[in-house]
Design a protein around this nucleic acid. Structure first.
Lengths: 218, 218
DNA sequence: ACATTATTTTAGTCTTGTCTAAAATAATAT
DNA sequence: ATATTATTTTAGACAAGACTAAAATAATGT
């Protein structure tokens, strides 16, 4: 149907256009895919020909409904594979991205349907990101940044905003994983750092951390 | 490391050089990969540069030890994925090939190691073909063609020589699956057809069928 | 409003892997 | 032994997807 390269562009645009009403810029896509703006312009023309995106010179791009369907399906596959890797093959959450990046391009509707069944129809991936259903719909959950909590509030850790290896390994080191209850014991006004309780441990975390951790308020 | 295309050439050569002492011909590779001889010549030069194969003009090719290692690893991955699809995702043995053909190119040593563990270190794929270990070694089992049995001999079905959809579906229809006990009740000399017993059923099968079915003599 | 800067596009090139058509070599038959 | 046929290789072309450098357009600052 589509090449891996085309799929990667669609996925990048899909992620970039979330919460933005303007078209996604050539440069933004180039940065996300670690390629050059000129390459993006080339590809964007092809995707436009195939009615996957709306493109007007110098105006940025946006996905058509068709493009959105294709893109969300790639994301669906990516996240289902991540669940598989963690749940069945004992990968840790910081190891799954690169492999899922390859697996998401495997073409077989039956494969994904059966994988979904095998995994028990998961709604979220190992980082707490929602898995689109076959029609691209996301199961939204109310989540807040940990940084938005005030003293004595608490919540369950439900996701991360930054899925980089470094950040995920940092969280592992601190014992912070999805499902854990976090309580804010103190909040420092001058730097936004938090003193939190998790399990029996108390620890201090910077604003940068709490800005990248989603919790569900209790 | 290597492109999917390179890997496909190595795999084709690997399969073609089994039981042959001469170099594998350009045409044979072209036929196997459904491509043109000229394309094969091009690729064969590249693989030769990379020391994966031995190639001399007009002489055909053969894998180096290095090439054999790479090739057997692709076959290993292909067959492990086939086991996964059948055992875990409820694919039937005639549905797995095309998907495994894609999955075999996923690059992640950990993925295969964990998959192997998850599947319980299988030694054979759903068609009875042996799965190479990390070093490319195959666990040989003594198997014979069903056509080699004589009247009143019997054996366990352990593999197929032809893995085409048509043949596999035919076997399904007749209730012939791996592990089944087959007894030869009659053998017709003039056309080699067999009258066999399998479970409580008796049926007649042509020489073409019995020439593509491996059994382990009892 | 216009000069400067940033972004985007165009033009031309490169690599990979394929193809066709023609030339070269090997195999086969008489 | 040589003519014929089959196989393989070469030469040149093409598409996809990337790149660089230069040109065009948009955005920004004073």
């Amino acid at each position: 149907m589509f090449t891996s390269s085309e799929e990667n562009y669609l996925k990048a645009i899909y992620h970039l256009e979330i919460g933005v009403d303007k078209g996604v810029s050539t440069n933004a896509i180039a940065e996300k895919l670690v390629t050059k703006a000129s390459s993006v312009t080339d590809m964007v023309k092809k995707l436009s020909e195939k009615e996957l995106i709306i493109y007007k010179k110098y105006q940025g791009v946006s996905l058509t409904n068709f493009g959105k369907k294709i893109a969300s399906n790639i994301v669906r596959k990516h996240r289902l594979w991540e669940v598989f890797l963690v749940e069945k093959l004992n990968f840790s959450w910081d190891e799954v991205h690169d492999v899922a990046e390859q697996l998401e391009h495997i073409k077989s509707p039956k494969l994904i349907q059966q994988l979904d069944l095998f995994l028990g129809f998961p709604t979220h991936d190992p980082h707490g990101d929602p898995i689109p259903d076959k029609d691209g719909n996301l199961k939204a959950i109310e989540k807040s940044l940990l940084s938005s909590l005030i003293k004595n509030e608490s919540g369950i850790c439900v996701g991360v905003n930054d899925s980089s290896k470094d950040f995920l390994q940092f969280l592992d080191k601190k014992g912070i994983t999805l499902g854990k209850l976090i309580t804010v014991l103190e909040k420092e006004d001058f730097d936004g750092s938090l003193f939190i309780q998790i399990d029996r441990k108390k620890l201090s975390i910077s604003n940068k951390i709490s800005n990248n951790l989603y919790i569900k308020k209790q």
